[in-house]
Design a protein around this nucleic acid. Structure first.
Lengths: 355, 355
DNA sequence: TTGTACGCGTTATCAA
DNA sequence: TTGATAACGCGTACAA
């Protein structure tokens, strides 16, 4: 039971006032050589840990956090991120944080720039960003830097982008996990890899998953599998179904399909129509459409990106950084969760974070 | 931007003093009918949320949390629980909680009673318990109840035990997940189920996993698998190896082994000696010995109980309940995480909880 | 029964 | 450059 050391105690030990100690600790200057030395000496000896409770109570400035992410109505993938963000907000707003959401069209540069402008206009103290568009994100990050606003990114990693922290998953390893699952579940034959629903801009992003997938298959696939990358028509176009049917005809020994995006349900729907549900289908993310087909068995497994947790951690990190002045990790990879029919419910019941 | 409503504000609105408002909110009595009514009226209209920061700063009473769990030196399974507990402590001790650990021998009633006694002697405000021994735990829970000490349990669920909250996993579903994995990975043949390392007391505990396993196999196993429960010699005895070898001889078509405890490494070690690593082995928990064999491929998959998270949540729940007076869930099932060679590292890098 | 005043540890302000 | 002091919102002890 070591008693707590307060600023007041330090002041007494160093024979100075609390104000001086405060100035030294936060090095705000305006301290004489002499006083500085005395205080530092005491600080060396004892292990001062500031009382964060008292600090937040005192400096009751509310920190404004702007969140920039795609509109979930345009891509359901983002629904769970928002849930995590709101959950974090509801847990942290008592520490004096305000969160404002700016939703953009994930494929429209104009939309992004518009929302980014609004976000900066709000004069936030921190920003959480899902950088779906490379060029636009880079420009925005620069704006943040010149404005001295800390930036945390999630979901999509962009190398050259300067940020405080990134929260997401290891895409390369994620591809390996998918391949491992495929090798476990599919019969020997042809495996299709498709990036349905993704834009060209994200080629790096996508490449990592495919590279990981192929790497595993080359190392551990025992030559049982032939991996072929296919480009399908957009799922919104009427050609989509034909395009898939034709691909399957071209590759009659197709035993598995790896969808590197959250759009596996589009494939599943068509496979059911074509009566080809025996094909082993692996995709990403626990969005409603995917769950339907995971339950019916057409989708065999989903890799869970923990998007809810990504959002939650994003807000938590910014709060820690701004409110509590805690150090936060520069990189946080979340687990590559393997979800099947049998453990699905155990994940769904954990979408809340109350801890 | 709704401004914060303080007790002072309520007092002004109701034309009473802060003291009166305080008495009403915490219903400590000593309030006249008249004043009570006025304050309640205001409270109805506005949505008062007490400032938890100020509350904890003010009432600087430290809450004492006693933790009762098995000594990790006697069973490595408990190592990660402790890590989670300590992590939670390090994050919450600024809110004025003190944690004291009481470690017992998981198979000794005497040891448990001894530690339980010490724990109560410490006069804790809340208790976190891993109830490995049924009878002893029930008696202890009663003692807690008569002493009015809130009790949270984790890992092992005991039905009749009165507690504030339970944190663990759905054992029956866990068995189903194991079976699903087995059906994916093992060739048709005999599957052994073994409860190695568990005591008879926990038959209910164990039964749920096996029931789930058999249920899945009966429903979805397509008669490919014959499930047989085997009782092996204790892994500490010299007979262990022989006992397993003999079992494998008795069941020559053995294609898989499901170990319902964290002791899969004992089987793995022997399988390697016997040169039978082709047998599909599924077990529980990311303890070091298991990881070695998961990496070497002798163990095919581990179901992760998130024991670290269990401990973390246990402390968090008690803190929420005692310090912040928040409601906490009566039951929290954690995900049934499927861990393979490829996604293992993504779990290991997440043993910290900094959020 | 009611109201007031002090303390929790820190930050911020202001006079010296 | 310093030190004293008033907030921050709540709990509590004590006086009215």
């Amino acid at each position: 039971m070591t008693k707590i050391i307060r600023i007041k105690d330090i002041a007494e030990m160093a024979n100075v006032s609390m104000g001086t100690v405060d100035r030294v600790i936060h090095n705000r200057g305006k301290v004489s050589e002499d006083a500085l030395k005395k205080v530092l000496e005491v600080l060396e000896q004892i292990n001062y840990k500031p009382n964060l409770i008292a600090r937040t109570l005192s400096s009751s400035k509310t920190q404004r956090l702007a969140v920039l992410l795609p509109d979930a109505d345009l891509d359901p993938f983002w629904r769970s991120s928002i849930l995590g963000i709101r959950q974090a907000y509801s847990e942290h707003n008592q520490f004096g944080v305000a969160v404002s959401e700016y939703l953009f069209d994930p494929y429209s540069g104009d939309s992004f720039r518009e929302q980014a402008r609004k976000a900066l206009e709000w004069q936030p103290d921190g920003i959480l960003l899902a950088p779906t568009l490379r060029q636009e994100a880079l420009a925005f990050a620069e704006a943040c830097q010149t404005n001295q606003i800390p930036l945390v990114c999630f979901n999509t990693h962009i190398n050259e982008l300067a940020m405080l922290s990134f929260i997401g998953q290891d895409l390369h390893q994620s591809g390996r996990v998918a391949a491992e699952l495929m090798a476990m579940m599919a019969s020997p034959g042809t495996i299709l890899v498709t990036h349905i629903g993704e834009q060209v801009q994200n080629s790096v992003h996508i490449g990592a998953k495919e590279t990981g997938f192929r790497e595993f298959m080359a190392q551990k696939g025992r030559n049982h599998f032939e991996v072929i990358t296919v480009q399908l028509a957009s799922p919104t176009s009427p050609d989509f179904e034909n395009s898939l049917a034709q691909t399957l005809e071209t590759h009659p020994h197709t035993k598995g399909i790896y969808v590197t995006t959250s759009k596996a349900y589009e494939i599943a729907r068509t496979l059911e129509k074509l009566g080809k549900t025996h094909v082993c289908l692996i995709g990403y993310d626990l969005i409603d459409d995917n769950l339907t087909y995971l339950r019916s068995g057409t989708i065999n497994s989903l890799i869970h990106q923990n998007s809810d947790r990504q959002g939650f951690l994003g807000i938590s990190y910014l709060t820690d950084y701004l409110v509590f002045q805690k150090p936060i990790p520069a990189l946080r990879y979340l687990p590559l969760s393997i979800v099947t029919r049998e453990n699905l419910d155990s994940y769904l019941s954990n979408i809340d974070f109350s801890q």
